[in-house]
């Protein structure tokens, strides 16, 4: 299946029902107990002098 076909079908399938978590869902920061895993640093250098 091509990527486009997959995406189209997947979107249809994933949106048949109302999602368990709506697009406005935010767990309150007072309830956040873990931060997941630290992402690896980017392989592009950050220039602190940029404005």
């Amino acid at each position: 299946m091509s990527d486009k076909d997959f995406v189209t079908k997947f979107l249809t399938l994933a949106t048949i029902n109302k999602p368990a978590l709506g697009p406005d869902f935010q767990k309150p920061l007072s309830e956040v107990k873990t931060l997941g895993v630290a992402l690896p640093p980017l392989k592009y250098k950050y220039d602190p002098k940029r404005t």
Binding site: D24, F25, E31, V32, L35, G36, L39, L42, Y44, K45
Partner: peptide, 29 residues
């Protein structure tokens, strides 16, 4: 940062940080 990195940079490397980091703390919005 993505713009500065130039044409070799992959947008996915940057967007993935937003998607994963916010999903990790349950912030879908």
């Amino acid at each position: 940062w993505f713009e500065d990195a130039g044409s070799d940079a992959l947008a996915g490397d940057f967007v993935s940080r937003l998607v994963f980091n916010y999903l990790f703390i349950g912030n879908v919005k």
